[in-house]
């Protein structure tokens, strides 16, 4: 009888332990939403491969060092922030990542964007694949970037850091806005941003571009309305910039022919040049992820402060 009782107890405790561990495991399971649906992971993946620059940028911003990413040399030149540690392996180009090298690095998860979408079936043979589309004509790119940032954070078990980082970004944007409001005495100008394609044409940023979203968050409206496109950019003739009118014109560095530009009668006839409402913006990556909004806003604010009417305050962005 006693033996039986002991056996029963033992059995019950076994059942209890199994149940408990199961529950604790259920808590460990990670459910991630990507652009195609829900995926579950048993535990936080530690070896992350980021196959596009905007993905790599967000993974790095979460404090996770990916094991592999593409075109690292060019990333350092054009995207710049956040910095890439030397331990990250280069896997070749964004459109043709080196699959054998990727496989040899044994990633736990592979994160891709639209240029790699059609490679999905092959990549899935290496590791589970998540797809985050940031740039599309159909949605708001900036909102998509922020949502994707949260999803990636969920996957990497850094949801809290992401929320903190986003809150920090909101705070930073609010600070920048205050600085601008002070410099412009509460009267923020309208602004249009662009990049020079040649002496006669520009790539103008409009709806759905990071630049415009950053400006909107700073409380600034576009000087020229331009409907959404996939990348938020459209080629325009230089002379169309006259429609900026009373607004401010900001162009991104680098532009090799700045000297010739300064001597151009047509450029100097532009209303914004005559009124001194024009400045260049430090090189910034226009096709990035969530945190690139902050970098973009900082670069834009710095330029706007430089040409602000109240020169008494410091023209440098205060950190």
């Amino acid at each position: 009888m006693l033996v039986r009782c002991q056996q029963a107890l033992l059995l019950m405790s076994l059942v209890a332990i199994t149940l408990l561990t199961n529950i604790s495991r259920a808590q460990d399971v990670i459910v991630v939403q990507d652009s195609q649906g829900q995926h579950t992971f048993e535990h936080v993946p530690s070896r992350v491969a980021a196959l596009n620059w905007d993905i790599a940028e967000q993974v790095l911003a979460l404090g996770v060092t990916p094991i592999a990413m593409p075109d690292i040399g060019e990333y350092r030149q054009w995207v710049m922030k956040p910095e890439v540690p030397d331990s990250v392996m280069d896997i070749g180009s964004r459109v043709e990542p080196n699959l054998q090298r990727l496989a040899s690095l044994k990633p736990d998860v592979i994160i891709i964007a639209s240029p790699q979408l059609d490679l999905m079936p092959r990549l899935q043979q290496i590791a589970p694949v998540l797809f985050f589309q940031t740039y599309s004509e159909q949605h708001n790119n900036a909102q998509a970037a922020i949502d994707n940032f949260k999803h990636i954070a969920t996957l990497l078990g850094r949801r809290q850091q992401a929320e903190q980082r986003l809150a920090q970004m909101d705070q930073r944007l609010a600070d920048l806005k205050t600085q601008l409001m002070q410099a412009y005495a509460g009267q923020l100008p309208t602004v249009t941003t662009f990049r020079f394609a040649s002496m006669t044409s520009v790539y103008q940023y409009g709806d759905n571009s990071t630049a415009q979203y950053a400006l909107q968050r700073l409380g600034i409206a576009p000087a020229i309305k331009q409907g959404p496109t996939q990348w938020g950019v459209k080629q325009q003739r230089l002379k169309n910039l006259r429609h900026i009118g009373e607004g401010v014109a900001l162009y991104f560095e680098p532009f090799a022919q700045e000297e010739q530009l300064a001597g151009s009668v047509m450029w100097n006839a532009m209303p914004f040049v005559r009124d001194g409402k024009m400045s260049s913006v430090a090189s910034a990556w226009n096709y990035g992820g969530a945190v690139s909004i902050e970098y973009m806003a900082e670069a834009l604010t710095q330029s706007l402060l430089a040409i602000a009417p109240r020169k008494t305050s410091a023209t440098e962005v205060t950190p």
Binding site: E74, T200, L238, A256
Partner: peptide, 23 residues
Amino acid sequence: LNDQYAKNLFIWGAGDLAQNGWQ
């Protein structure tokens, strides 16, 4: 292998007569 650098060249490749001044 270096795509970002070449972006501004494509308009030259397409042939563009637009002028900015008489230079």
